[in-house]
Simulated scan of single mutants.
Amino acid sequence: MRFYSVIIPIYNRPQEIDELLESLTKQTYTNFEVLVIEDGSSKKCEHIVQKYADKLDVQYYFKENSGQGFSRNFGFEKAKGNYFIVFDSDCLIPEHYFQAVEDYLTEHKVDAFGGPDKAHASFTPMQKAISYSMTSPFTTGGIRGNKKHYGTFHPRSFNMGISRKVFEKVGGYKITRMGEDLEFSMRIIKAGFKTALIPDAYVYHKRRTSLPQFYKQLHFFGRARINVGRFYEEEVKLFHWFPALFTLGFISLPFWSAVNIYVSMAAYSVYGLFFLINFSSSLAQNKNIHVAVLSIATSFVQLFAYGVGFLTELGRKLVVG
């Protein structure tokens, strides 16, 4: 039986760690420890972690604020497991998670892995709509944890596992924010380690709870892709430009209206078809018209915000390097 170390960085979100730790108490496979790394929070969660001292092998650490990447490194240094698993604090873990990982690693030799994310039944309609847009094949979210991902799988830090050997050879995160998990995954792959998606090792990822928060997060993701390109230029691929083209196209709609009515009608039809496809897909998936309507907004925000962030950081890179 492998021993796993769960690393959870947290910053000013005590309510999230309560729900996450509660979900970990229900695991069918229990050979793991939990390390909660408080990253300089003003709203500490130590009292919540202590609630689970008799239910989990859990340790709490407080450190100065340095960002999630370096906080995970702090946890790696303290961990005792054969494998280290990183969760975001806004995740809920289904009871079969560790058994699914254990079964997969027994059959496959893999040094780094990740799993998909899903919407829990208890999520609000907005959370379900955001989950849809982040996992749908009709938005860029389809490449994040999808069973049929494109190319080599790059684990993401909301649900990521690495072997101790990976940490000993590659080290931890080199950057602490803005694409830190992408850079880490790329370095792991370039070092010759094999990665894999474990479809049954999914988590319920709450993500953001409002459109403004979601916009801010996706804007940051767009910037992060360009930031990772500073380390690995080849990792900014053609399909990463799609949200930027979506954004530029949408902004240019009034211009086409003034230039040519037929071109304008065609352009508006393309965006209308995009929204209709996402509405229909979300309705089929969630069986809820409220979530489907919200999915139109979240799909738009996802692509538009990512595109704005991508173009903003690209401009900054061209100007200052």
Results as ranks from 00 to 15, higher is better:
A266W: 11
R13D: 01
K194N: 11
A201C: 07
H219L: 13
K165R: 14
F32L: 06
F231S: 14
H120N: 15
Y268I: 05
M1D: 10
A129W: 09
L245Q: 09
A266P: 00
I189W: 00
K190G: 03
M126N: 02
V320W: 08
I10Y: 01
K174C: 03
I289C: 00
Y173Q: 06
K63Y: 03
G171T: 07
V110T: 15
I189L: 11
E183A: 14
D54W: 01
Y29V: 04
Y4M: 07
K206Y: 03
R230M: 07
F32A: 09
L253E: 09
A112G: 15
K169I: 06
C91S: 14
T195W: 10
E107F: 08
M160P: 00
V6D: 07
E95P: 03
F98A: 07
R13K: 14
V320P: 00
M186W: 05
G115K: 01
K147P: 05
G315P: 00
A119R: 13
S282N: 07
I175S: 00
Q15C: 04
E180T: 02
P254V: 09
F250D: 01
G40F: 04
A258C: 07
Y83N: 14
N12T: 07
K147G: 08
F220V: 01
F32T: 03
E95M: 10
Q217S: 14
A196S: 15
S133K: 12
V270K: 03
L56F: 03
N12C: 10
F84W: 05
T176E: 05
A201G: 09
L197F: 09
L245G: 11
G75Q: 08
L197K: 10
P155K: 11
F275C: 13
I289S: 10
N260Q: 09
T25N: 12
F74H: 12
G81E: 08
G151C: 09
L314R: 13
I226L: 08
Y60V: 01
S269P: 02
F3M: 12
A196E: 06
P212T: 07
C45P: 04
N146K: 13
M160S: 04
F184Y: 15
M160A: 11
T124H: 04
A284M: 11
E183N: 12
A292Y: 06
E19C: 06
A121C: 02
S5F: 09
Q217F: 01
L253C: 11
F242M: 14
E16T: 04
L294C: 02
S280Q: 10
Y204E: 08
V236I: 15
V291T: 04
S131H: 15
N260Y: 04
D90N: 01
A258T: 06
L294K: 13
K80M: 05
L273P: 00
L311S: 08
L318M: 09
R144N: 13
G192I: 03
G172S: 03
S163T: 12
F250R: 05
L56M: 04
M186S: 08
I296H: 01
F158R: 00
H108W: 09
F84C: 11
H205N: 06
F98Q: 02
G69F: 05
K80F: 05
H240C: 11
A267I: 05
V236D: 06
P14F: 12
E38N: 15
P212S: 14
Y202E: 08
Y60L: 02
Y268Q: 08
A119V: 10
D57N: 14
R207C: 01
D57E: 07
I261S: 15
S133P: 04
S252D: 06
Q27H: 11
M1E: 07
